[in-house]
């Protein structure tokens, strides 16, 4: 093994160590927080039993939130601090020809889930800070895609 090959070997090993270490950390995080990732409800993911279930309907171009008590809000999501929330997200047909793909993203809470026509995706999260956080549709969905946004209000 000459000098050149040795240097190559060192940097390849260094890269492998860093990347495989990161990958293992990532896998451990996923396995411990699987409820925080979007899953098809048909896969029967498990969620905390005391969670508030909010049905989210993405349509061209607004978000509608249907709470378990039957009330509905548009482009505003109200949740209670410290209480787990389960979002069940789907896409429904609005005034346009079809229901299309949307993507609900709440960046400050690292929450993101696609709204797929004919499929219910779910995830759960527990808001820990009182405040108001913006959310947006981040999958392009037509003319007024940019107006498909609003605020998540976490109240005491």
């Amino acid at each position: 093994m000459n000098d050149k090959t040795k240097k190559e070997f060192i940097w390849i090993v260094a890269v492998l160590v860093v990347l495989i270490g990161s990958a293992i950390g990532n896998v451990i995080y996923i396995s411990m927080h699987s409820q925080n990732f979007a899953q098809n409800v048909n896969a029967h993911p498990t969620y905390p039993s005391n969670a508030d279930i909010v049905h989210v309907e993405g349509t061209q171009w607004s978000w509608t939130f249907v709470y378990s008590n039957g009330t509905t809000t548009t482009n505003v999501l109200n949740v209670t601090v410290g209480k787990p929330v389960v979002l069940v997200v789907t896409s429904i047909k609005g005034a346009e020809q079809f229901a299309v793909i949307h993507d609900l993203s709440i960046p400050k809470l690292a929450i993101q889930v696609y709204a797929i026509p004919g499929q219910n995706n779910s995830l759960s999260f527990t808001p820990t800070v009182i405040g108001s956080f913006y959310f947006e549709c981040v999958e392009y969905c037509g003319l007024d895609h940019y107006e498909m946004r609003g605020y998540l209000n976490v109240v005491a």
Binding site: W11, S22, V27, I30, S31, D103, Q112, Y114, Q119, N121
Partner: peptide
């Protein structure tokens, strides 16, 4: 984030780390 499952997320994130190896080389 499209609801294709935890296994999907695990596999493709791991592969995304590995694809950096040849780029780094």
């Amino acid at each position: 984030n499209s609801g294709l499952g935890i296994a999907w997320i695990t596999f493709f994130t791991t592969m995304s780390f590995l694809v950096v190896i040849p780029s780094a080389i």
